[in-house]
């Protein structure tokens, strides 16, 4: 009973996959043809990620320079910034391996404008900004895994997502926000 059914299902799936592949061949390359390497496009997407890291590093520089971080937390905040610097360096190396040039950082002054740092008046504003950026970055990395064709890069992206999620958790607890009851929490 189960055997023919299962075979039927598999055959159906094979047909569907064949149909989709045929369609994809006409309409679009992109991540329907995930296995096909596309180093230039991978580098494009990693350059969006490195821009995210540059901005995160800038945001922590602004936070650390604000005088609003309690002395006891400076070490932790500095270590978070250090993680982002390591991500940046790893991404830059990956982008170079793909034959492209890593995107440059903007200036701190520009990040202060982009992130509306002028509106920061207390520690809670910094925590909210950090949570927005870290949570956004965790989700952004998870969103990159599918579209990036080169599967050698997937573990790196997943690790970065986990790092950002860890940072986000600290700010979630600081701000006494609820951890959602519904999993998955990201992605």
């Amino acid at each position: 009973m189960t055997e023919p059914n299962r075979r039927g299902l598999l055959t159906g799936m094979a047909l569907t996959t064949a149909g989709l592949t045929a369609l994809a061949g006409v309409a679009t390359p992109a991540f329907a043809k995930k296995a096909k390497s596309n180093p230039a496009q991978d580098a494009n997407l990693l350059n969006a990620a490195i821009a995210l890291e540059h901005e995160g590093i800038g945001a922590y520089t602004i936070a650390l320079g604000s005088g609003l971080i309690p002395p006891a937390a400076v070490g932790l905040v500095t270590s978070f910034q250090g993680h982002h610097k390591q991500h940046r360096d790893e991404l830059a190396a990956a982008i170079r391996r793909l034959g492209a040039t890593p995107a440059e950082s903007k200036t701190i002054e520009q990040y202060a404008v982009d992130l509306n740092a002028g509106a920061i008046t207390g520690l809670a504003d910094i925590q909210r900004l950090a949570l927005r950026l870290e949570r956004g970055a965790a989700n952004a990395y998870l969103g990159l895994i599918g579209p990036i064709a080169n599967s050698d890069l997937h573990l790196m992206l997943a690790r970065f997502a986990a790092d950002e999620a860890t940072h986000a958790t600290v700010f979630i607890l600081d701000l006494k926000e609820m951890i959602p009851t519904q999993a998955p929490l990201y992605g």
Partner: peptide, 17 residues
């Protein structure tokens, strides 16, 4: 939007997007 897009986008500033 904040969780899924806020890493790269804001309403009033060009960031990553």
């Amino acid at each position: 939007y904040e969780a899924r897009c806020g890493g790269c986008h804001s309403l009033d500033a060009n960031r990553i997007g």
